[in-house]
């Protein structure tokens, strides 16, 4: 099938402003957007810049805005887009470094701000091995362990577009992962961080994050659970 692609281009050292470049190619509808981008870079324009790594929806490098919606380029097939004309842009709300590559530092700063690691100062169990928990306790935060930090959620969030100080859905999801972990002792600290104006209260439940998540994490629900924990003081 014949496809027409409109790709966002911006080279800050050469271009005064961004522009769109048009490409045309033949591809199989079962190919992924990433395959098409690789084909363009290999055959038509070697200067096209985009991130990719594993190419199998695990590393989270290639989140981009495809026909107005955030996807991982390696997970979306051309036929899923139901269109012969495809517009590809960088994810919104972060500074464009070049073409489809954005500066992820502000995103990772928000991630780091919620202490996304196990906090437990108790001595290790007598056998010196792992801290055990029941399958039910593990199940409680299973959904939020799936995050691959691709930023598709945070950069689809209108509150984040309006104000980059908002920690964003991805940071809250990763806080949720530890807040609800029965082995962790840092929930109070994280909830205190998220109980600020730029914490969970910036969420207006637009559900864009849940729609954008390539891992199908129930993000809006996770944010609501954090809000509930702040109000009730209970982690259940």
């Amino acid at each position: 099938m014949h496809y027409k692609l409109k790709i966002f281009r911006f080279h800050p050292e050469q271009d005064a402003r961004p522009h769109y470049q048009h490409f045309e190619l033949d591809a199989d509808p079962t190919e992924r957007v990433l395959d098409v981008l690789e084909q363009i870079r290999g055959e038509q324009d070697g200067t096209l810049a985009f991130r990719r790594s594993c190419a199998h929806g695990v590393c989270g490098s290639d989140a981009m805005r495809i026909n107005g919606r955030n996807y991982l380029a390696c997970k979306v097939l051309l036929r899923d887009l139901n269109a012969a004309e495809i517009t590809i842009e960088p994810i919104l709300g972060l500074r464009v470094v070049k073409d489809l590559i954005v500066d992820m530092e502000p995103f990772f700063d928000h991630y780091k701000s919620v202490l996304p690691y196990l906090i437990n100062d108790d001595p290790l169990p007598a056998d010196g091995r792992e801290r055990l928990q029941s399958p039910e306790d593990r199940e409680r935060f299973d959904d939020t362990t799936k995050c691959i930090l691709c930023a598709a959620c945070t950069t689809s969030c209108p509150s984040f577009w309006a104000n980059g100080e908002y920690v964003g859905p991805a940071a809250i999801v990763n806080a949720h992962r530890f807040i609800y972990d029965s082995r962790d002792q840092g929930a109070e600290k994280r909830l205190e961080i998220l109980n600020e104006q730029m914490g969970v209260w910036r969420c207006r439940t637009a559900f864009n994050c849940t729609e954008a998540c390539p891992r199908e994490i129930k993000i809006t629900q996770a944010i609501a659970e954090v809000k509930r924990a702040i109000h009730t003081g209970k982690l259940e």
């Binding site: 029941s134 109070e188 909830l191 109980n195 209260w201 209970k234 259940e236």
Partner: peptide, 18 residues
């Protein structure tokens, strides 16, 4: 065997406003 924990989360202006 689900653990239910309690945490101290003092109310602030933003949580009350919400």
């Amino acid at each position: 065997t689900r653990t239910i924990r309690s945490v101290k989360t003092p109310a602030n202006y933003e949580s009350i406003a919400w």
